[in-house]
Simulated scan of single mutants.
Amino acid sequence: MDANTLINLNVHKQLVAKSINMPAGYLDDYHQHPWHQVIFPVSGLLQSDIGDLSMVVPHNALLFIPAGTSHKSVAVTQTEFVALYLNPTAKAPFCRTLKSCLVTPFFKELVLLLLKTADELDNRAISNLLRVLNDQIKSAANYEIPLLKPTDRRILAIFEQLIEQPATQLTLVKWAQQVGASERTLSRLFAKEFNQSFSAWRQHLRLVLSLELLTTPRSIQDIALSLGFASDAAYIQAFKALFLSTPHKYRNSVLQAKTT
């Protein structure tokens, strides 16, 4: 059942919730909801376009989308996400501003609790939990990871191959030969779409892909080499520059909720 049908069947409720699975590459094109929406990936990576903003949402982040806001999402990898739909007339005074924020262990457990109990708790209990959710959204740190997936078909072909084999070391000259464009054209396209060079974009892509790998028992060195970094030191340095945290700290603090 699609979200808006679910909302229309439950207009008397404060909250409806569902879990959604998307295969890699699945596009949920532009749409909007009459209720506020929370998008939280349990696993995988989503890229969402909202107005002039395009951002990646990994499984340690969350999107709050105000009611009536047009948006689309595409699954960068196989993705499972929780969608909470919040009635604007509910007692919790949710804001009307888009926010991408960092999810703490407590925040994550709250979202999962609302998913599990949306149809079980009475109105008073739901109201109390929604007030806590509202407080968490307001106080959470902003967490925005820029656009990754291109729109041009030639660099989209590069993107799709790197998703499958991120350690691929082809130069831009070699990629140009594969996708039927000149090196100069590809350089111009990367600058236009991402305001980055090809090498900077590729590193950005590898770093974002590493977020999911850090939820596994694999060593930091193994993750670094599997993504094409020359060493674990190079990976750690690049990760810290983008995410303001080391991979080890990310694994042991942001994701500790997986073991609680």
Rank of each mutant, 00 (worst) to 15 (best):
L255A: 00
S43L: 10
K72F: 05
T97A: 02
P66K: 02
L27A: 03
F40T: 09
A200N: 09
Q136H: 08
F159Q: 12
Q47T: 14
T151A: 11
L211A: 10
A233I: 07
K116Q: 15
S226T: 10
T104W: 02
V132Y: 03
W35I: 13
S73Y: 02
L170T: 09
Q165M: 14
W201Y: 12
I39E: 05
V74W: 08
I163L: 15
F243C: 06
A176S: 14
Y85S: 12
R154E: 10
K116A: 15
D222I: 06
L114G: 10
R206F: 03
L113H: 01
T117R: 07
Q161P: 02
V103Q: 06
T97L: 00
S253R: 07
A3T: 09
N195K: 04
M1I: 04
Y30C: 07
V38D: 13
N134C: 13
A238S: 07
N87Q: 14
L62V: 01
L213T: 12
D232W: 04
L130R: 00
A191I: 03
N8D: 03
Q177V: 13
S139V: 08
H33R: 08
K174I: 00
H248R: 10
A234V: 02
G25A: 07
L129E: 01
F40V: 04
R251S: 08
T77S: 11
L98I: 10
H71E: 13
L121H: 07
L189T: 10
L98W: 03
R218P: 03
F40D: 04
N87R: 09
P34E: 13
G25V: 03
Q161R: 14
L86T: 14
N8S: 04
N21Q: 11
W201F: 11
N87A: 12
L227E: 07
L121C: 08
E144R: 09
C95G: 10
N134W: 08
Y143E: 05
R124P: 00
K99I: 04
T260G: 11
A157H: 13
A233Y: 03
T168Y: 14
D232C: 04
P146Y: 01
S139L: 05
K149R: 15
N4I: 06
L98C: 02
G51I: 11
E212P: 01
V57A: 04
A90I: 12
A157D: 12
V76M: 09
T259M: 11
G228S: 05
T171M: 15
H59R: 14
Q221E: 15
V173Y: 11
L205W: 09
V208S: 06
N195T: 04
T216L: 09
A75H: 14
E212K: 00
Q221T: 15
N142L: 06
S226Q: 04
D222L: 03
R153Q: 03
L172N: 15
A238R: 00
N4D: 02
A257S: 14
A92N: 02
W35E: 09
T97P: 00
S226R: 06
D29F: 11
F94E: 01
V76W: 05
I155F: 01
I145P: 00
I20D: 03
